[in-house]
């Protein structure tokens, strides 16, 4: 299976290379640091959401509340949280948003476990509640003046290079945070018993519970991590865009889920990698970035994502079909005895 998954990931990389090549042939300027930085910047928030969702999907269930968790955490933090000062002033702001996200994740877990309902239904409900709560009690107006530390963080870059045509292009330092989260989640899934339990529960919850794995505890952990990561993604998004707009992510759940499926995460649970989820997000960002130079209106971006999603699912069923047949025949025909 690892081999097949790797194939799907190779396919994504191949597809991206092809896309870059095709656009670059027409616009040589497209092949350069500017495109790389643009795609990475556009992917940063998406990658975090995708990694969180991937965890939930692997444990068995489709989470649709992550964007609501992200924006509620970030918006409430910006509105009521610490303004922060000093060189590390952003730290408490980020910590608070992450903590709120974690709390909302625990609420998700509680609903799933107590109501014994599917993750999709539970998060559909909590998602609406979170958004409703935000507009009713926190507010709905755009905050365009962020706390000072966030403003300066938003313009602190890791790399800055000359632009392809004019000006400069740069990559924000927060990419390091995204990288660290990815590494942490990868290590969690690979090196901890709790991480392996996530796969076990997603593979067969009944068998997992007979193997002494606590299914509810695993779910709580998964939702807590996914919530915290979503809270972090929210505040990073606010920092990068320089404003807190409660409607930022509305209706964008599909993009993240599409990325996760494209990355080879099995929608039925039990299979998925951080690497795959990241590649899925990068592909979608690259498609969006390619549409502009090709002169295709950006409204087609959604259609392109939908088409990619279908392609991803077709790929998975094709792989699934191929695996289902296990050979029974021995190579040589055995002696036929008729005693």
């Amino acid at each position: 299976m690892r081999r097949v998954l790797a194939n799907q990931e190779l396919l994504l990389i191949g597809l991206m290379a092809l896309l870059v090549l095709a656009v670059s042939l027409k616009f040589p300027d497209f092949f350069g640091l500017q495109t790389l930085f643009n795609v990475l910047t556009a992917s940063m928030v998406g990658i975090l959401f995708a990694v969180g969702v991937m965890l939930v999907v692997v444990s068995g269930g489709i989470d649709v509340s992550f964007l609501a968790v992200g924006i509620l955490s970030a918006y409430a933090t910006v509105k009521y949280g610490p303004q922060g000062d000093g060189p590390f002033g952003a730290l408490p702001v980020f910590a608070l948003s992450t903590a709120i996200g974690l709390g909302l994740g625990l609420v998700n877990a509680a609903v799933v476990i107590v109501a014994r309902t599917s993750v999709l239904i539970a998060t559909l409900a909590t998602s609406s509640i979170y958004l409703g709560t935000m507009f009713a009690f926190v507010g709905g107006e755009v905050i365009s003046t962020l706390p000072q530390p966030l403003q300066s963080l938003g313009s602190t870059h890791l790399f800055t290079a000359k632009g392809a045509v004019r000006g400069t292009t740069s990559l924000n330092i927060l990419i390091l945070v995204v990288l660290v989260v990815c590494v942490l989640v990868w290590a969690f899934l690979r090196f901890t018993i709790a991480g392996r339990s996530v796969f076990a529960v997603g593979g067969d919850a009944e068998a997992a519970s007979r193997a002494a794995i606590s299914v509810p505890r695993t779910r709580v952990l998964v939702f807590a991590i996914a919530g915290a990561v979503a809270g972090l993604a929210g505040i990073i998004s606010v920092t990068l865009s320089g404003r807190a707009d409660p409607t930022t992510f509305m209706g964008r759940e599909l993009d993240t889920l599409a990325a996760v499926v494209l990355g080879g995460v099995a929608i039925a649970g039990g299979k998925g990698t951080v690497r795959g989820a990241v590649l899925g997000v990068l592909l979608i960002s690259l498609v969006t970035a390619s549409l502009v130079p090709l002169g295709i209106p950006t409204i087609w971006q959604r259609a392109a994502v939908g088409a990619l999603l279908i392609a991803g699912i077709l790929l998975q069923t094709a792989i699934g079909r191929r695996q289902r047949i296990r050979p029974i025949l021995d190579a040589p025909a055995p002696e036929v005895t008729n005693a």
């Binding site: 299976m1 392996r196 796969f199 076990a200 997603g202 068998a207 193997a211 002494a212 794995i213 039990g270």
Partner: peptide, 17 residues
């Protein structure tokens, strides 16, 4: 019914519980 996790390797199924 064996109660194995189909998505994990045999080695992991044996060792994890």
């Amino acid at each position: 019914d064996f109660s194995l996790m189909p998505n994990l390797t045999a080695a992991e199924n044996i060792a994890l519980p």
